[in-house]
Each structure stands twice: as structure tokens, then as C-alpha cells.
Simulated scan of single mutants.
Amino acid sequence: MINQFKNIPTTCISDVMDGLNNMDPSIKPLKEEYNFVGKALTVKIPVGDNLAVLKAIREATPGDVIVIDAKGDQYRAIAGDFVVGMAKTMGVSAIVVDGVIRDISGTKKLNFPVFCKGTTVASSGKHGIGEINVPISCGGASVNPGDIIVGDADGVVVIPQSDAQTILEKSLHKLKKDELREEQVSGNIDAIKTYIDQMLLK
């Protein structure tokens, strides 16, 4: 099922969920071409302590997406290029954080999907506070361990594990409808006018 979400844009998935499970639009990919899909390995940390992030990397199964509730803090980084490099080596699909990272140049060179609020110069401490595989909030969206997370240039959506099959079917159906509309309408002046007239009559 996860593989089937790979070719569906986040915009399409968001539409079939009525926009209810989107992360805040401030959480963006470091590079526009980044995209990913995978199961959530959740991390809850206090501001300024990233030891639980290291624990998550140690416990991750290849393909997992590490989703971090860093309380939106933009002063202290949850990771730099060294930590992100370890996640990549362990087979993690992506890191998504309601917070920031550092070592921007080195991290970009890794070509590993990192979605965050931005960058900083300050590091985090390692006092050992935090939890993994617990329900969290990330970017205003509820995330439970095992939920399917999809990210691309437009942002990040959370697909509740219990509804994944239904959302997949609806997303595939909508994608086909969108592609058909594009084929029939785009580049055709008369078809564009007809389409707009139909929208105005609704």
C-alpha cells in the first residue's frame, strides 16, 4: 500500500481528506525535488534536547519516516549533517520535524529528504528527555506511530493508518479524474470556457 502512495501528489491526498491532516505549510523540504512516503516513527522531545532523535534512528526499520515534535522551536537544531547522515545510512526514508536543522550545506549534499521549518546554528543538548513511538503533534497535525506520511514540494500530509486503504482508493480515483480533466480541458479554449461556466453555475 505504501508504494502505491508514491506517485500520488500530496495535494490530491489532502483534497480527499478535506485538508484535515496537513502539516503546517511552514514545514518544507530543504530541496524542492525531495519526496517520500513511509510509516511514521514518532519522536517527542522537549526544546533543545535531541537524544530521543538518536534513539529513533537506532530503532528505525528501513523505510520508516522519523517524525519529530520539537514544539516548533527554531533556535536549537534537532540534527545536523552528521545525524542526518546516520539516518540515511540506517535506511530511514525521511526526517520531518516541527523545528529546524543545521549544517545546511552538508545536509543538502546528502540528498536525503529533510522537511523542516528552516535552519539555525545552535545545537541541541543530550539530557535524555523524550519519547519515541508515542502519539504526537507535528505541524499542527496528529501523528500516531505507523501512520503513513507523504511529503513533496507542496508539503506533508498524514494518512491515519486505520483509514489508509480508503484514502488510497479515493486518492487514486481523484488522480485519474484530474488527469482526465487536464487532458480534455488544458490547451482547448472552448473546453476551458465550458469548464469555467460549469464551475460558475455550481
Score class of each variant (00 low, 15 high):
residue 23 M to G: 00
residue 115 F to H: 02
residue 154 D to H: 06
residue 177 K to G: 10
residue 3 N to M: 15
residue 51 L to Y: 13
residue 32 E to R: 08
residue 137 S to W: 15
residue 39 K to Y: 09
residue 133 N to M: 14
residue 157 V to I: 13
residue 149 I to L: 04
residue 38 G to T: 04
residue 64 D to K: 08
residue 79 A to K: 00
residue 81 D to Y: 10
residue 74 Q to E: 08
residue 3 N to H: 15
residue 129 I to G: 10
residue 38 G to W: 01
residue 42 T to Q: 02
residue 155 G to W: 00
residue 106 G to K: 13
residue 185 V to Y: 04
residue 98 D to C: 06
residue 65 V to D: 00
residue 169 E to N: 13
residue 193 K to W: 14
residue 22 N to H: 06
residue 84 V to A: 08
residue 61 T to A: 10
residue 5 F to W: 11
residue 54 L to W: 07
residue 161 Q to C: 13
residue 94 A to G: 09
residue 86 M to Q: 10
residue 70 A to E: 01
residue 6 K to N: 08
residue 201 L to V: 11
residue 4 Q to E: 11
residue 184 Q to H: 09
residue 114 V to L: 05
residue 153 A to W: 01
residue 161 Q to I: 15
residue 125 G to A: 11
residue 106 G to D: 12
residue 179 E to R: 12
residue 8 I to E: 01
residue 64 D to E: 12
residue 2 I to E: 07
residue 99 G to C: 06
residue 31 K to P: 02
residue 193 K to Q: 14
residue 38 G to F: 03
residue 93 S to N: 08
residue 4 Q to K: 09
residue 190 D to T: 12
residue 175 L to S: 13
residue 60 A to M: 09
residue 26 S to I: 10
residue 141 A to H: 05
residue 93 S to E: 06
residue 137 S to D: 14
residue 4 Q to N: 10
residue 28 K to F: 05
residue 192 I to A: 08
residue 193 K to N: 11
residue 154 D to N: 06
residue 11 T to N: 10
